[in-house]
Simulated scan of single mutants.
Amino acid sequence: MLRSWWLAGLALVIGLAVAVPQFRGGLYWVGGVELVVFAVLAWSWSPLMFPRSVGAERARQDGRPVIYWRPGCRYCQRLRFRLGRDARRAHWVNIWADPLGAAAVRAATGGNETVPTVALGGQTYVNPDPRWVRERLRERR
Results as ranks from 00 to 15, higher is better:
A97E: 14
V118N: 03
L41G: 07
V13M: 13
G72F: 03
P21L: 07
S53R: 05
I95G: 03
L2M: 13
A8N: 03
V33C: 08
W96M: 09
E139S: 11
N127G: 09
P99L: 13
E139T: 03
G25T: 08
D129P: 04
M1A: 13
S44D: 12
Y68L: 06
M49P: 01
L120P: 00
W92T: 00
P47M: 07
D86A: 15
P71G: 15
G26F: 09
L10D: 00
W92F: 12
A17D: 09
V133C: 04
E57P: 01
I95R: 02
N94D: 15
V30T: 14
G55D: 13
A107G: 14
G31A: 10
Y75D: 15
F50I: 10
P71M: 11
R3H: 14
W6H: 14
I67G: 01
V40L: 15
R89A: 12
G63E: 08
L79G: 03
R106K: 15
E34L: 15
P65S: 08
L83K: 04
A97Y: 04
Q77W: 10
F50N: 06
V66L: 05
V115S: 02
P71Y: 03
R52T: 10
L41C: 11
Y68Q: 02
G84L: 05
D62W: 08
R106V: 05
V66C: 04
R88Q: 13
I95D: 00
L83F: 07
R80Q: 15
L12E: 04
R70D: 00
L2I: 12
G63D: 05
W43C: 02
Q77T: 09
I67F: 06
